[in-house]
Design a protein around this nucleic acid. Structure first.
Lengths: 140, 140
DNA sequence: AAAATTAGTTGACAAAATCAACTAATTTTC
DNA sequence: GAAAATTAGTTGATTTTGTCAACTAATTTT
């Protein structure tokens, strides 16, 4: 019965790739690309994070990230500060503008999810999120 | 308690984006790009499918798809046949080579998933896939 | 103190994706 | 049943996204 499990996981992956693609399509209408939004997320949630921390948690090319951060700096979303402890490392912090920008995107994403959840009964909504939490748990 | 549900769905989306990204990274080592593999999947599972059917089910640009199909045709993975019923439409079929190519990729993907499932107890594996099926059900 | 490693930047490019204009076939509409 | 509108697919031009390797400067390792 192993095959059946593999098939289900793969079916789920295809299904969820579609869901995520749909949600992402929405964000792409904003003035930020997907990787940019993910970087913003990291910056918002980790004060004084360094570029290399973002690289390892987001698994992205450092040259690519460097350019994204350059843009953010130009747009005044981020300030860079050279680390006192390690002169190579740069600590990154969102400016109020940056925080604001993220929060706006964040609210839009929340609304998007809410629209999905609204179609479910309170009970189903509860079940859905319980299953999600369980899956995260199992796969972590 | 709506916020908590929204937060869980979003956490799950971030989590699963990572999972899918990881799995995809693997496929990208093959000689096909992600969209190419998805197109192959459609071709494999729907005989005589047309380009516009692929477009609507995969939500992709028609110019982009057209070029992917061109490549597939050059590589002898696919044959095009103009529809008898509608002279604009083209019916697409995988050649034996194309089917073979897909099946190889497919086996590799299966193996990849199997490696994940192996880390779980039979019981957890059962639960995981049940939750996945439930989620698909709830969101369809 | 020299050698090796690490953080981040930059330039050159390659791959992926979008957009709009176009041809040809087919429906729609009057 | 002919003109107008729509649809399937192609093609060219362009933009966006992402990768790779070379490089500087700071820091560790030996």
């Amino acid at each position: 019965m192993k095959e059946k499990h593999i098939a289900e996981v793969r079916a789920f992956n295809r299904f969820y790739t579609g869901i995520i693609g749909l949600l992402d399509r929405y964000i792409l209408k904003s003035r930020y690309s997907l990787p940019e939004v993910r970087v913003l997320y990291e910056l918002y949630h980790h004060k004084n994070i360094t570029a290399s921390e973002i690289i390892s948690s987001l698994q992205m090319d450092k040259g690519y990230l460097s350019r994204i951060l350059q843009q953010f700096t130009r747009k005044r979303l981020v300030v860079k500060k050279i680390s006192v402890a390690d002169g190579r490392a740069v600590h990154l912090t969102l400016t109020p503008v940056g925080r604001n920008e993220f929060e706006t995107l964040n609210r839009e994403s929340d609304k998007q999810i809410q629209e999905i959840l609204e179609k479910l009964s309170p009970d189903d909504c509860e079940r859905l999120t319980r299953y999600m939490a369980e899956i995260r748990n199992l796969l972590t």
